[in-house]
Design a binder for these strands. Structure first.
Length: 158
DNA sequence: GCCAACGTTGGC
DNA sequence: GCCAACGTTGGC
């Protein structure tokens, strides 16, 4: 099986890796960017995800999740009471999808964006680029492994 | 709070 | 189709 790797951003004040660990599974709703949506549509069950805390102090990768269910319609787009409501979306042709993610691991210590930026082997990774805004991005296997090793290195030093 | 880097909207 | 105005993301 060819497994693919991704990075997904979430603001921990809204939904953190601790929240995911408590629930085990989560529907990743609220993505309203076509590029991010298209990446989610490419995700396969078993793919691994770097769970990134954005708008955090500090921002960085907090752990790992796994794709538990592939893309299916985001119910919040049909709900007028939801902040994610999209009046232009129809049941016949939904615009927005979710994937279901499962908790795999919470790092003992966050791998901060500063650490990622300081790692030469992560050059070219989307999240280290200046002005990176895309909330869902593919990650090279080499980059994914390198982030795991950074997380392990931090743990062993303590 | 500032600002860079986009994405979206709408006039033309 | 072009582009200006505006909105959003997210680091710092």
């Amino acid at each position: 099986m060819t497994r693919r790797y991704w990075l997904m951003k979430s603001e921990p004040d809204v939904f953190s890796i601790e929240d995911l660990a408590a629930k085990d599974f989560e529907e990743w709703d609220g993505v309203r960017n076509y590029q991010a949506r298209n990446f989610m549509r490419d995700m396969k069950k078993g793919d691994l995800v770097l769970f990134y805390h954005s708008n955090a102090k500090p921002p960085g990768v907090a752990g790992v999740a796994e794709i538990a269910a592939e893309a299916h319609p985001d119910r919040t787009q049909f709900d007028p009471k939801s902040e994610y409501y999209d009046p232009k979306s129809t049941q016949d042709e939904p615009r927005w999808d979710v994937v279901t993610v499962k908790h795999v691991e919470t790092f003992d210590e966050l791998v901060s964006l500063a650490t990622l930026k300081g790692a030469a082997e992560l050059e070219g990774m989307h999240v280290v680029r200046k002005g990176s805004r895309l909330s869902v991005t593919p990650v090279d296997q080499e980059h994914f492994q390198a982030v795991l090793e950074l997380a392990k290195a931090k743990t062993s030093v303590r």
